[in-house]
Simulated scan of single mutants.
Amino acid sequence: MADRVDLIKGLIMQKEIKSRSKRGDKKQASKLLAQIKKIFNDVLKEDDDNVFEGDIIRLLSSPAANSYISRNFFPQNLSEYGRYRNIIEYTSDLRLELRWMIYCLHFYSKEISTFVREREKYDDFILLNQYEEALKVVEGIEKSFGPPVKKFL
């Protein structure tokens, strides 16, 4: 339902305002996060694949909601990595879990493909003892994807 998507985005904006204001009400922000989590998990458990697809694409495309759903796949620094709370509950339904993960992977397919290509370049340079070139690849990856990806090289 499109209403759920708009509601989630609105609640996320309210939570961000509450959390960031100098007199932010942390208790209210926590309640908003609980509401976001409940509504998002209703989206996650949607039986109709077409409705789910529309909702998840809209949420992943939303700058406000994306980081809560994908857990910020490509943070630009380490402090940004842990900024977003997990709103996803395990559904105990493998089909639903895989469906959600497939949409996230599809949404980020270009970035993942770029990372894999760069990783292959890095491996080739290391095997050829071209360490300066390998370092340039790492620096390029860090610039594009942020520092946490170093642990995957």
Rank of each mutant, 00 (worst) to 15 (best):
K31L: 07
L127K: 15
L59S: 00
I126A: 10
L33G: 09
K31N: 12
F145N: 05
Y81G: 01
K27G: 00
I57H: 08
D47M: 09
G146H: 07
N86S: 06
S19G: 10
Q76R: 04
R117M: 03
E16H: 07
P63M: 02
G54F: 11
D3H: 04
N129T: 12
L127T: 11
F40V: 07
I69D: 09
S30I: 01
K31S: 06
S62E: 08
K151Y: 04
Y84G: 07
K26H: 03
L153M: 06
E111C: 05
Q14L: 02
Y90A: 11
R99S: 07
L98P: 08
A64P: 02
F52M: 14
V137K: 01
M1V: 04
E97P: 03
P148W: 03
F115C: 03
G10M: 09
L105R: 08
D124P: 04
L78I: 01
I141N: 12
A64V: 02
A64Q: 03
F73Y: 01
G10T: 13
F40K: 09
D124S: 15
I126T: 05
I69A: 01
K150V: 05
G146E: 05
K18M: 11
K18P: 00
V116A: 00
I17S: 06
D3T: 07
G146N: 05
R20A: 13
L59F: 04
D48F: 05
R117Q: 08
C104Y: 03
I69G: 02
R23N: 15
P75I: 01
R85E: 15
R58S: 15
L44S: 14
L33M: 13
S113E: 10
G82R: 11
R85N: 15
S109E: 11
K110D: 10
C104S: 05
L7G: 04
I141K: 05
D93Q: 15
D47E: 15
L11N: 03
G146Q: 03
F40Q: 07
K143H: 03
Y68F: 14
L135S: 08
N41H: 14
L96Q: 15
E120V: 02
L33W: 11
R4L: 12
R58H: 10
A2Q: 07
N66H: 07
E132H: 09
P148M: 02
N129E: 15
D3C: 00
E120F: 02
Y103M: 06
D48N: 15
Y103N: 11
P148V: 06
R85Y: 14
I87V: 09
A65M: 09
G140A: 06
L153F: 07
F125K: 04
E139R: 14
I88S: 08
F107M: 09
K151P: 00
